[in-house]
Design a protein around this nucleic acid. Structure first.
Length: 613
RNA sequence: GGGCACGUAGCUCAGUCCGGAUUAGAGCGUCGGACUUCUAAUCCGACGGUCGUGGGUUCAAAUCCCAUCGUGCCCGCCA
């Protein structure tokens, strides 16, 4: 509804400005501070003061006079406050917001009939997913959800680096060493924890082993890479045995978040189908192509990139970057847009990729990157799979769930709501809260900022965390369930004509509450109106966050929303006996609207919305 | 050395792209309050900030420009 209101205000303002012969290129539309009654404002009078030869407040007055409020649907009045123009919402604005928000899909924008492939995580299949990498699936999943809500047709891809030197090393190590050669037991009973030991042992051997044996190993690794390059089936099978096993374990870990994918795209696919060879041929034809030190490279200096892009090694094998170019052209063929979530260490490669794709004649406007900074351990220590440093995501999630479970149990005695949580409920809540807290903590921050990982901070269940927002959802459900129970009781005693209760799992249409007869006009308190205005903004927040690929804005919204809801909860009883029935119904609709808003906002973030907690 | 990002209360962060509403917002922590009333994982109040620093542009700068300092990342025939 906010989007419609904004369009209406823009039209009205533009009309008024041109009627007064003022320029309309900058309408100065902004959102007013919290203590101002209006939902939209304009500071355009500041800029027009010089031209008008009058002080800004006077100009604002002129403009306000020029706008005929009677012609507007969602604006009830245009007021000036000094130089500012304030647009106040009409009853129709609030009524329609209440009505549309009681729909379960509230916040989902119209289908744009545009496909987007979101590639994220794409961690090399070398071992367990650690916390340093966890930012990628958490942000990536949220970006994909966000685009889906914004009306795009989204596919989620994990690009599997199964052709690089790392995998050749891994394959060699896996085939060469035995269980006896490995120093430690697996840290966890899952395949990637088992196999990563070979990878670590192999890398240590290559670094410190006897020269002669290392040379032999290198020869073997080289032959694996050559085999892959030539499309040799046997080599592919050998490497796949390692890749598929490790990947299956990583997949299981990511599913705990859950971060799920529509497709795991292997880079060997673009070697085996000939795309990489074709691409290399086309790259060689570019003006920027140079042959230096026996390797084919692209000199991108004229395009602002100092570092050459090597696309064919002196031994004739392709590189990750080469195959990624083929990969991206494939994306362009199959999707309207492509979004990639990358760590900041890949920034330069992303620029090279972009520039090269453009040189190859692609329209790179359809390619966007979301860059995030690294997660470090306290003391500035990094996380590495090869070296085995870092916190495993599995451990973080286990710890989060344990702490959440403890929290639920500690609070059990103090609960007022008589819904008797059983063991299964406790486990459910522990999972929803624990994992939700981890995801929220990461997705709520601007990805460009570096994060230092600290247990207590990541697992803080207090305000500004997932549980804070989840609690609002549980409160909504509590009220709706309670109302259902009350109505059922009334009906049983013949006091109420309404038989159906309200099921918080579904929307209100078709339930006992007759939305047609709900009158938003009875919502008169500031708390109610503030809440409704916040609900009204949700679709606009989705749109803006999606345009900029910034899911953290949804998290910011959930906090503002939770604040507003808690104010409403404190000041406006819904089910008390002394509440007028019309007010009660309107407030129930408001609670239902709140529930859908917060549930869907959390859904975008990939955080579950508990019915009780 | 060069490139890119980040620097806002003791701590963790919004706000910065698109400059505007006499006191720059939250949370944590500290201190003090609120559960006979739809769940207190909540709420109310107090304390706490030269928005890294210095210039500039502007009627107006946390926000734009320049410089500078600090931190992170990158500058491989690795991925």
């Amino acid at each position: 509804m906010f989007l419609v209101l904004r369009a209406e205000v823009e039209d009205a303002l533009e009309g008024a400005l041109s009627a007064l012969d003022f320029p309309t290129d900058d309408l100065g539309i902004e959102e007013p501070p919290e203590d101002v009654e209006s939902v939209l404002a304009s500071s355009v009078a500041f800029r027009l003061a010089g031209e008008a030869g009058a002080p800004p407040p006077q100009v604002a007055g002129q403009i306000a006079d020029e706008i005929d409020v009677d012609e507007l649907t969602y604006v009830s009045a245009v007021q000036t406050e000094g130089p500012y123009l304030n647009f106040l919402p009409s009853d129709a604005y609030l009524a329609e917001t209440l009505e549309t928000a009681t729909d379960e899909d509230y916040g989902e924008l119209e289908d744009r009939e545009e496909s987007v492939v979101v590639e994220h995580t794409s961690a090399n299949p070398t071992g367990p997913v650690h916390v340093g990498r966890a930012r990628n699936p958490i942000i990536g999943d949220a970006v994909a959800n966000l685009l889906e809500y914004a009306g795009y047709d989204v596919e989620r891809h994990y690009y599997v680096n199964d052709a690089g030197r790392q995998m050749a090393v891994f394959t060699w190590a896996y085939e060469t060493f035995d269980e006896d050669d490995l120093e430690d037991d697996p840290e966890r009973d899952r395949i990637e924890y088992d196999l990563v030991r070979y990878y670590r042992t192999g890398n240590a051997f290559l670094e410190n082993g006897p020269d002669e044996e290392v040379a032999e190993a290198e020869a073997e690794i080289e032959s694996i890479m050559q085999g892959l390059e030539e499309g040799d089936d046997e080599t592919y099978e050998r490497v796949s045995e390692v890749v598929d096993q490790v990947l299956s374990g990583m997949k299981a870990c990511l599913e705990r978040l859950p971060a799920e994918f529509d497709e795991f795209v292997k880079e060997t696919r673009f070697m085996r189908n000939g795309d990489t060879d074709d691409l290399v041929a086309r790259l060689k034809d570019l003006d920027e192509a140079v042959y230096e030190e026996d390797a084919w490279q692209l000199d991108l200096e004229d395009h602002g990139i100092d570092k050459n892009l090597v696309f064919l090694r002196s031994d004739g094998t392709s590189l990750y970057a080469t195959r990624d170019l083929a990969h991206h052209e494939w994306k362009f063929d199959n999707y309207d847009r492509a979004v990639t979530v990358l760590g900041e260490d890949h920034k330069l490669q992303a620029r090279q990729l972009n520039t090269t794709l453009e040189l190859l004649g692609n329209d790179t406007d359809q390619l966007e990157q979301v860059i995030f900074s690294w997660v470090n351990l306290p003391g500035g220590l990094g996380m590495s799979t090869r070296e085995g440093t870092g916190v495993d995501l599995d451990d973080l999630l286990d710890e989060a769930i344990d702490r959440a479970r403890q929290e639920v149990e500690d609070r059990l005695d103090d609960r007022i709501r008589d819904d008797d949580l059983d063991a299964e409920d406790i486990e459910r809540i522990a999972h929803q809260v624990g994992i939700g807290a981890v995801r929220y903590d990461i997705v709520a921050k601007q990805p460009t900022k570096a994060i230092t990982f600290e247990w207590d901070q990541a697992l803080d269940f207090e305000a500004q965390s997932a549980p804070y927002v989840q609690y609002v959802h549980a409160r909504c459900c509590g009220i709706l369930e309670e109302s259902a129970a009350q109505r059922a009781a009334e009906d049983a005693s013949g006091q109420s004509p309404r038989a159906a209760g309200l099921d918080p799992e579904t929307d209100l249409a078709g339930q006992g509450l007759d939305l047609e007869s709900v009158d938003a006009g009875v919502l008169e308190t500031e708390a109610e109106r503030d809440l409704l205005e916040t609900i009204a903004r949700f679709p606009a927040v989705i749109e803006e966050a999606a345009d900029d690929l910034e899911p953290h804005r949804i998290a910011t919204f959930t906090r503002e929303f939770a604040d507003r809801f808690n104010a409403f909860y404190r000041e406006c009883p819904v089910l008390s006996d002394d509440v007028d029935p019309a007010v009660r119904d309107a407030r129930l609709a408001l609670v239902a609207a709140s529930k859908h808003t917060v549930a869907n906002a959390l859904d975008v973030l990939g955080v579950e919305a508990p019915r009780s907690m």
